[in-house]
């Protein structure tokens, strides 16, 4: 495959692309259009036994945090590594940009975040629009500062009631993360505890460790790793609620950490 610099190279490369799309289409066609009846054994088993075995009314939760919690652990690990990786690549980008003046050092992380947001100036802002943008940022601060706590509470609600209603740790965590971002935006200068990246990263690690400990807790009760230690007890859903809270904490801290760093509050 030639580097498409010439006209001929360009045609050649488009032909290659068409060819590969056609090849993949040929392989995928039978799978996508399969019409055999959907297997329902797992569904029927879950409908009958799912609630009794895991305590979760929301059967998706019962799989996500019960039967297949091993997968969920893997998923949170992917998130953890991806956030760390993005962060380390980002710090290299920042060092390449190298336009942050030295006097930034005295400001708090949240302040820097606000600065960076102003500096970057939205998306396609020309110079003369800067002023109105600053106004808009002030408005943004006022609104987000008020909304932040409400969203935070909503996030915790979604997190803790995942076993009975749609939602759960992950979704709640994302909402908590956005609440953290809002709080950071809304309180420039004040610098809430949650917008401190070091606090967030420690919180994330702690939640990760807690999650590992919870997955191992079945050991003490003879189910081995990834079992539900309260399986035989009266209310096994307690385990799922705790897990939801831990997953939510972890996701919230990870994503909040990521977003705040991306907004420029990186120390």
């Amino acid at each position: 495959m030639a580097t498409p610099k010439t006209r001929f190279g360009k045609i050649w490369s488009k032909a290659g692309a068409v060819l590969s799309v056609a090849a993949i289409g040929f392989v995928l066609f039978p799978i996508f259009l399969a019409d055999n009846p959907w297997p329902v054994e797992a569904r029927d088993y879950l409908a009958a036994m799912g609630q009794a075995e895991t305590g979760a009314v929301n059967l998706v939760s019962s799989i996500y945090l019960g039967y297949r919690i091993f997968d969920t652990l893997g998923e949170t690990i992917v998130l953890l590594v991806a956030v760390l990786g993005t962060m380390s690549i980002l710090s290299r980008v920042e060092s390449l940009v190298d336009d942050s003046p030295a006097d930034d050092a005295g400001k708090s992380g949240a302040d820097k975040a606000g600065d960076a947001l102003k500096k970057s100036g939205g998306f396609s802002l020309s110079r003369e629009k800067r002023h109105s943008h600053t106004l808009r940022t002030d408005l943004l601060e006022a609104v987000t500062g008020k909304i932040g706590p409400v969203i935070l509470i909503f996030g915790f609600y979604v997190m803790l009631f995942g076993h009975v209603s749609p939602g759960g740790g992950f979704q709640g965590g994302v909402i908590v993360a956005s609440a953290i971002v809002f709080l950071t935006l809304g309180n420039p200068g004040a610098g809430t505890l949650l917008s401190n990246t070091r606090v967030l990263s420690t919180l994330e690690t702690a939640a990760f460790l807690l999650m590992l400990l919870l997955s191992s807790s079945g050991l003490l009760f003879g189910q081995g790793f990834f079992g539900n230690p309260m399986a035989g007890a009266e209310n096994p859903e307690v385990y799922i609620i705790i897990l939801n809270a831990v997953v939510g904490l972890k996701v919230g801290a990870s994503l909040g950490f990521l977003c705040i760093t991306m907004m420029g509050g990186h120390k």
Partner: peptide, 27 residues
């Protein structure tokens, strides 16, 4: 019906794909 129990006589959909796809979306 959505795979959330609680009412009688629900004819729920298969929750397994939903749980798997949660993981896939996040990844």
């Amino acid at each position: 019906d959505a795979p959330i129990l609680g009412k009688e006589g629900l004819h729920i959909v298969d929750p397994v794909p939903q749980a798997l796809m949660l993981t896939a979306i996040v990844i």
